[in-house]
Amino acid sequence: MLTLETQNLTHRFTPHDIAVNNVNLRVEHGSIYGFLGPNGAGKTTTLRLVLGLLRKQEGSIRVFGDLFEQSRLEVLRNVGSLIESPSLYGHLTARENLVVLQKVYRCAPGRVDEVLALVGLPHTGRKRVSQFSLGMKQRLAIAVALLPQPALLILDEPTNGLDPNGIIEIRELLKHLNQEWNTTILISSHLLAEIERLVTHVGIINKGTIMFQGTLDALRSKQQQSLQVVLDTSNPDLSQQLLHQQNIAATQHDGKLILPSLPKEHLAAINQQLVHHDIKVFEIGIVKNDLESIFIDLVK
């Protein structure tokens, strides 16, 4: 079952500038969906479209199975969001900021203290938000998003401005919300490493187009497929020739041979053969592409 689904979502800021191109997001119920892409890839534009902050031009958006434009109020009642920089009233305290929204969401007054405690801001007292550090503002903005106990949480780069401890705390909090309350979370980031330990699903967008979408495991299997073997020998040309005779696609790079991942026995046989042809083998190694390099390859 999908909590959020877009079909052929397309948005142009000018006729020749396609910011989002036929995006088909599929965020499964109960998942933590990492929405990845470099700066300017179209992440924020997509999220703003999903929340109705930008007027939809082409395509459709369904949230909780309903078309967004037809059930806007019902949908927004169950969605918490943080888009780009924190949206907070600087002249009010943290508590007052939340009470402003508590009135609209009609949630219990006690919920304000609950979310303040959840994000680690229970004792800011009468300090005005304009005097908060960026990290504190970011935490409060997350508290705002959590206030209505949303079934869907949309967070656009929520860890911006947080120190490493803060990032870990927020990550644990989001995991907890997902596990305890089955909250579906859509979280965007430009760093895979930052959300790799959090997400169950990944969507990678570049230049407005989805390059990959699936589970984190599917992305990892892509990583397995991209493993390569590096071979450093005294005669790369002859080595390459011998490998080609065995139908192994080997390419030269900086005097070394790069070949696809092979079973250990096969590598041992190649080594024996090269030695047999008086070729000295200096190195046989595995080039491990981490998820980050897969991500970079996809967005190149």
Binding site: R48, L51, G52, L53, L73, E74, L76, R77, V79, S81, I83, E84, S85, P86, S87, L88, Y89, G90, L101, V104, Y105, V144
Partner: peptide
């Protein structure tokens, strides 16, 4: 201008309000 100054229009427009 409170909303522009505090960058809160986007928050206001994602509330369940017409």
């Amino acid at each position: 201008q409170l909303e522009y100054k505090n960058n809160t229009w986007k928050q206001l427009h994602t509330l369940p309000l017409s």
